[in-house]
Every structure is written in C-alpha cells, then in structure tokens.
Design a protein around this nucleic acid. Structure first.
Length: 478
DNA sequence: TGAAATGTTGGGGCG
DNA sequence: ACGCCCCAACATTTC
C-alpha cells in the first residue's frame, strides 16, 4: 500500500447483516473516502443472541466474507464485546476518523445505533448509517393518508412500479491499513456448539454460504427457475423456489440486486418474474412493519388477541411431537425434518406446519417462532415474526382464524406423487433415501427416535384439529 | 398464500 | 317430447 493512502485516516466498516461487498453503500462510501478500510464484525451478546442454526450459519458467512475481503487485499476483523467499546477501541488503535455501517430497522438496533452515533460523534468521529438492507426506506412508503401499509396487496401495488437505483458494483480494491488490529479467530466449532452432532449434518446439507454462492444461485434461478416460478414454487419436491432466503437474511445478496434481476426477467416477458418481485415485497413488508410496529416481533400484532386460548406450555407431548417431527401427519413431519437437516424449509411447508401448530395443536405462535429461530439458517427476525403471526391469525393481513390448512389436502395438491414426504420421512420405507436417514443423524439421541420405528398415528387428525380450532375461535369471539 | 358445506346449473339417462 | 332424477362441475357461502 502506498504511503499516500495511509496518510488518510482509516474508516471502520462495521458489518452486521450485510455480509457482502457488492451493492453495499456503506462500504462503497468508506472506500470512496480514500483512506484504509478496516472491516469488523462484532459478536455483541448484549444486543442479539442468535439461535443455534443461525449462529452456525453466521460463522459460515463470516468465513466467506473474510475470504472475499482477502481477494480485495483486505480482511475481516472479528471482535467480541459491546459494539461501542469495540469500535472505540478500534478507532483509537487505528487512528480511524469514521465509522460506517448499514442501517437496521428493529427498535433495539435503532436505539443502539442512535446511542452509538452520539457517543462516537462526541469523540469527534464521523458516524454514519447507510441504507442497503431493504429496497425502500420505510418512511418513504406511505398510504394515501400518510400512514404505513398494514395490508400487503396495496403496498405491493404502491411499490411495484417504483424506480430503484441500480445496484452498486463491489469496490475493485478495498485499501488495507498498514497494520492490522488484533482479531479473534473465527472458531467454527464454537459457532456450531449449540447444534451438537447436528452440525455435521447441516454442513453436508445446507447451501454454500457467501456472496459468490448467493450470486450463483440468483443466476441459476434466473436462468432455469423463474420462468415457471408461479407454479413451481408450490411443488414441494421440486427445486422451484429462489432459495435466496439465507443469503438475504445475512445480506450476502441485497434485495436491490434481486429486484433488478427480477425486473430484467420481467422486461424479457418472463411469466414468473412478477411473482418473484412480489415475494421480495413480502420481505419488504415485514421489515417496514418491524419499523412501524416493533411489537410485531414478540407480541400479538392485533389488539384483543391476548385473550385467545392458546396453549403456552412448550413441554406438552404434542408440541414435542411437532418439534421432533413425529406428529404422525406426513407432510408436517417431512417439512419439519427438512428444516432440521438442511436448516431451511419449503415456504409452503412453513405455512402448513405453522397452521398445524397454532390451529390443530392450539399452541401459541411464539413457541413455533422460537423453534424456527433456533433451527433455520435463513432465520430473519422480521419475516419469521410476520409469518407466524400471519399463520396464527393475529398478524397484519393475516389469514382469518378459521382458515385452517388441511395437511392431507395440501399433500394431495403440492406433493401429489409423494416425493417430498419420501425424501424426508424414513419410517415405513424399505430403503429410505439418505436425506430421510440424515434426520436421525441430526437429532439428539435423547429424542429416542430411529428410522425403522413404526410411524405414529396423528397426534391430532386434520378433521378433529380443524373442529377444535374453530371451537376455540368461537369461544374467543364471545 | 383455505376447506368444507351448500347452492346452482346443465347434460344425459330413463320412464 | 317431456318431466324427473342423478350427479358432475362450478359458484357461493360459511366456518
């Protein structure tokens, strides 16, 4: 590195859920500032403690980001502690003049960012948050009367034709400091510790992590899948969805990059492009709701639902059966096992298992939300919370309570030849596929399950569960 | 981004 | 030919 560059004060780039180099406004601004850029990720337990699978996935993402930074002549500094302490430390260490980051939208992060900004500015340091996590800043999307959208479709209509700047290219080079601040080592084993022996199964069956893999998947999706996406996304055995959720969750790809890819497909007359753009707006809807109504993350979004007679005991056998994927309802169990083995679940499966837990089993959505938070490598606080509240009936634009999925009927429609259930449920198969067997390698021994067990009768049948849910709703109404 | 029950319609078999 | 019944196939309503 030339002395000229080193003469300018360094900029700290504080990475969080934006583990990419392309279309990264804060990073591009840091590079444009001229001095060296010090990229840091901080494990700050006081702010967010992740579930087991998301934490494991984060480790993968950080490794990939470090590798990508090294290709640009830079590297990732890892630290543990309270973000302000760490950043101040690094500022002093490196003589940095600025700290840049990508803005977050949940209440806790906003408070945190605001405190941090004041503190750093008081130290005489430039502290700036940049957009990049969502397509549109939440305060720029308003209804006719100046409020925010509480129903999806009007929001979709309001934003689908909006102009959106083109994604930024990744910086060609990210200037390095003359000396590197100390960094923790990324300990893969520690990141996967809570997974127990499931870590190896996830490592085998999860998607590859990182920005390059994300771009690869987007390219594959655009070339081979999006054309038939309108229907293929519902066929559960098929690779017919975008599968971009874990990349989007950690910001290994930006929503804007996906949006522009979708727009190009739409211009080329691609039938599924609009459906894909719509899904991106669902993600947008979730984050905007988190911004405007932070309680969506942990309390019933709709007033009055606190009185609903949900069961909140997570130790009930039938809740255990749901978590352990042995409800005796094949499609529910298959989807739950897919999640345990791959860290992901088909979107239709998410709706089905959520309906089953909250309606057939009359269990509080927070219990399902928590389980997903622990098991999903694509766990996204906004989408997860909105999805659960949508399923339970207490959320924005929610399915009415009486709209109960029938898992047997869903199976007939979306897994008609049974390929999805066979892929994930070993019991009853003479020669179960490796995927179905992998589930038994992933789960704790203490669950006492084996692939040649008899497959159980349903803990609650479709018809009986439906009636109980409707009765509960009736009681609740009165 | 439901499911099931109920209502309506229209064609065909049959006396 | 006609009325009657049956029953898909849809449409509408209700949960």
């Amino acid at each position: 590195m030339s002395g000229k560059l080193s003469d300018k004060p360094a900029t700290l780039l504080w990475f969080r859920r934006d583990l990419r180099l392309g279309d990264h406004p804060a990073l591009s601004a840091a590079v444009a500032r001229g001095g060296p850029v010090i990229c840091v990720f901080i494990h700050d337990d006081s702010v967010a403690k992740l579930g087991a699978a998301p934490q494991w996935r984060l480790g993968r993402g950080l490794s990939a980001l470090d590798a990508a930074l090294r290709d640009k002549g830079n590297r990732l500094v890892l630290r543990r502690g309270a973000a302000l302490d760490v950043l101040r430390d690094l500022v002093a260490d490196a003589g940095a003049g600025a700290v840049y980051w990508t803005r977050a939208y949940d209440a806790q992060s906003r408070d945190h960012e605001s405190d941090l900004t004041s503190a750093l500015r008081a130290d005489g340091i430039e502290a700036r948050a940049f957009p990049g996590h969502v397509l549109f800043e939440p305060w720029t999307v308003e209804t006719g009367t100046g409020g925010f959208y509480k129903v999806f479709t009007p929001m979709w209509k309001a934003v689908r034709g909006r102009d959106l700047d083109r994604p930024l290219p990744a910086p060609a080079k990210i200037p390095a400091p003359r000396t590197w601040p100390a960094s923790d080592r990324l300990d893969d084993r520690a990141m996967g510790a809570a997974l127990n022996r499931g870590a190896q199964v996830l490592a085998t069956h999860a998607q590859p992590a990182g920005e390059a893999a994300a771009q690869g998947r987007l390219g594959h999706f655009m070339a081979h899948i999006v054309g038939g996406y309108g229907a293929s996304r519902d066929r559960m055995a098929e690779d017919g969805t975008s599968a971009l959720s874990d990349y989007l969750s950690l910001g290994e790809i930006s929503a804007r990059q996906c949006w522009h890819a979708g727009l190009r497909a739409r211009e080329e007359g691609c039938a599924g492009a609009d459906d894909f753009l719509r899904e991106l707006v669902w993600r947008e809807f979730a984050w905007h709701l988190v911004y405007h109504t932070p309680h969506i993350l942990d309390r019933n979004w709709k007033d009055g639902w606190d009185a609903f007679p949900w069961n909140t005991d997570a130790t009930r056998p039938r809740v255990r059966a749901w978590q352990r994927a042995r409800t005796g309802v094949p499609l529910v169990d298959a989807a739950m096992r897919e999640m345990y083995v791959t860290g992901r679940m088909h979107n239709r499966g998410r709706m089905i298992v959520a309906s089953y837990l909250t309606k057939h089993l009359l269990t509080h959505w927070r219990i399902g939300q928590g389980w997903f938070e622990d098991c999903l490598v694509d766990w996204d606080p906004a989408s997860n919370a909105m999805g659960w509240q949508w399923s339970a009936g207490c959320g924005p634009d929610a399915t009415p309570y009486f709209r109960v999925f029938n898992p047997d009927l869903q199976r007939k429609r979306f897994d008609p030849d049974g390929a999805y259930v066979r892929r994930w449920v070993a019991e009853g198969q003479a020669r179960p596929p490796a995927t179905a067997l992998a589930y038994f390698d992933a789960i704790p021994r203490a669950w006492g399950m084996a692939p040649n067990d008899a497959y159980p009768a349903p803990v609650v049948t479709a018809a009986e569960g439906r009636q109980r849910a409707l009765d509960a709703y009736e009681t609740f109404k009165n």
